[in-house]
Design a protein around this nucleic acid. Structure first.
Lengths: 340, 340
DNA sequence: TCGGTTTCTGAAACCGATTTCATTATGCCA
DNA sequence: TGGCATAATGAAATCGGTTTCAGAAACCGA
């Protein structure tokens, strides 16, 4: 039993395909109500559903977008994805999910597949695996792109691209202010890999905030982590060896902070009494662990929503946009007055 | 600059569309090598890529599958998704990602969208939001389905559906055996919502294992949780009020176990000295927390791989399959000899 | 040289929708 | 009652591919 087509509906309703197509598209301005009813009837009795594929062929729109992320295992993305998805569902768009696995080659393969499948646009959130080919090829195919947390200056001229930048400054400044107000002066930072632009941005915000609060940024210990729990655990060891020992740590993300927290527990260093820990992201887990994590909150759900909304606006208007998403501090139980 | 078409290639190569189509499809059996070369040349110089949309219209294949899950925030899914995606990428399939959010209405909307977009098959992993309409509609559209962890007996006759069942029995039996060997006799279970079939299955496996080890299953405390951290935290309170107090708990999943763990920490009950905790799933976090979680491991990455492979096999052969995925115990630090 | 295979290629139909353009009804006014 | 907008519908082209079918070219044995 093959799929019902518009021709079947037309036959049953006793009208032409054009007429059926019109009621499908809502172009019912010049149409007898009775005719429309007959068509609707036929559609119902047949259980007809129009073929998106056929429609896409002529309309050149697929009601589909691509979502490229680096790592589904990273909790940072979960809320983002939810945000993207909620907006997509509300506008009847579908999402091609692409996990690049931090692999540029795979990233590229995915991108080509998206082009071939004629997605209407792409959300590029795999900030690590960026190469300029992406922008060139997107421009070449006139494919609208939304870039999250990329610093792009060399975009091809006629490219359709919108950017969302993450502003870590306010949240990190608040965090340092909070620690300083608790009497901390020896504050360390566990950063992400220096190869990542986003890690460098966070670190710089940390150094600036230290400077601003009259602390010697040049002397502030910075340990390079990997944005994961394991890196946090290792970093704790390094921190304990610094003399004089820091009384507070700002981690580049929550996973790192959790690594610090759990390793501290392992070594019988009590948090927050002996060591205050501040995370960054505010992943779901942050509020669920004990002690709950004080952290710089990045509104990830909103980020996802904004990204998808931006894409939809681009699709409608053909214009490009830039947005900024701010951070702020959420105080919980992992920070306390300095023991010093 | 509109997209290049097969006609452009044909013109440049000085051949007909049919010929170009043949080299595209590899049907080059009766073709002069020189002709094929000319076509390849033209494809290259034009940077031509065939339109998947147009191709799908005639082939009725979209090289696309739908993936329905209930909650992207649930770490259970991450590895599963990775498994699915790895197989999909390897076979040049794309994935429509659908988060049902535990909402049957949304689940249905997603399903319809997938049908409209003519996916080649669907992986249904949103076990909670099951209703029989799914099977009926899938059968009606001859849409191949893979069901994970569903008990389905009333499938429509000609439906193309494969099933993967999760076998919790061996892992849970091992867990109870492990606890018993540590001297525990008062063992509680924090289950998932009894409305979920999968929660009932786990609970039953727990009761059977108790029975098998000579413990009184009828007396074993079972507390209903919600498969999340919050539920675990609450359940701990309930457990502490039971007299005589249980010395060990088997949680229905790792999130619940983590909730137990963190709430225990909150109330100064030391794990595992005073209370042994066993999780289920072996999410990534389980091995990263302190103390690391003893847990019944469900091979989630493999599960994802198997599911996608099964779908591909169905697509090829038109046959249906059933698979079973087993569990086993992973012993870490959250279990210790009974204090009693 | 001829008829019959075997290679090789192109014209045209088709997939299932949309859209343009033309045509037929209908209503209204002189 | 004729003429002319305006309303309502259908025929056919189109989107970008694949596939069928038929015809041309080359080859081969008699």
């Amino acid at each position: 039993m093959p799929r019902k087509t518009i021709a079947d509906v037309a036959r049953v309703a006793g009208v032409s395909k054009s007429t059926v197509s019109r009621v499908l598209g809502g172009k019912t301005r010049y149409m007898r109500a009775e005719t429309r009813e007959r068509v609707l009837q036929a559609i119902n009795t047949l259980g007809y559903r129009p073929s998106v594929v056929a429609r896409s062929l002529v309309s050149k729109r697929t009601q589909t977008v691509g979502l490229l992320i680096s790592d589904i295992g990273n909790p940072f993305y979960h809320e983002v994805i939810r945000g993207v998805e909620d907006v997509a569902v509300a506008h009847d768009y579908s999402i091609f999910f692409c996990n690049t696995n931090y692999d540029p080659a795979r990233s590229r393969q995915h991108f080509h597949s998206l082009v071939d499948k004629q997605v209407d646009g792409v959300l590029f959130m795999a900030s690590g695996d960026y190469s300029s080919w992406t922008l060139d090829e997107a421009a070449q195919h006139a494919l609208p792109l939304v870039l999250v947390d990329w610093n792009v200056e060399d975009a091809p001229p006629q490219s359709l691209l919108s950017k969302i930048t993450l502003n870590f400054v306010p949240g990190i400044h608040e965090a340092i202010a909070h620690l300083v107000s608790l009497g901390h002066t020896r504050i360390a930072h566990v950063s992400g890999p220096h190869t990542l632009a986003t890690a460098r941005k966070r670190k710089q915000a940390f150094l600036d905030a230290m400077e601003k609060h009259g602390l010697d940024a040049a002397q502030a210990p910075v340990i390079e982590g990997d944005l994961r729990v394991a890196g946090g655990r290792q970093a704790l060891g390094a921190i304990l060896e610094i003399a004089p020992r820091p009384t507070a740590v700002l981690a580049a993300n929550d996973l790192t902070a959790l690594g610090l927290l759990w390793e501290a527990r392992n070594r019988d260093i009590s948090v927050p009494e002996q060591l205050s820990i501040v995370g960054l992201d505010d992943i779901t887990l942050a509020s669920q662990v004990t002690p709950a994590l004080t952290t710089v909150s990045l509104p990830r759900y909103d980020l996802g929503k904004i990204a998808m909304q931006l894409l939809l606006e681009m699709l409608q208007s053909g214009e490009c946009f830039t947005r900024r998403v701010d951070t702020r501090l959420v105080i919980r139980q992992s920070t306390a007055p300095s023991p010093a």
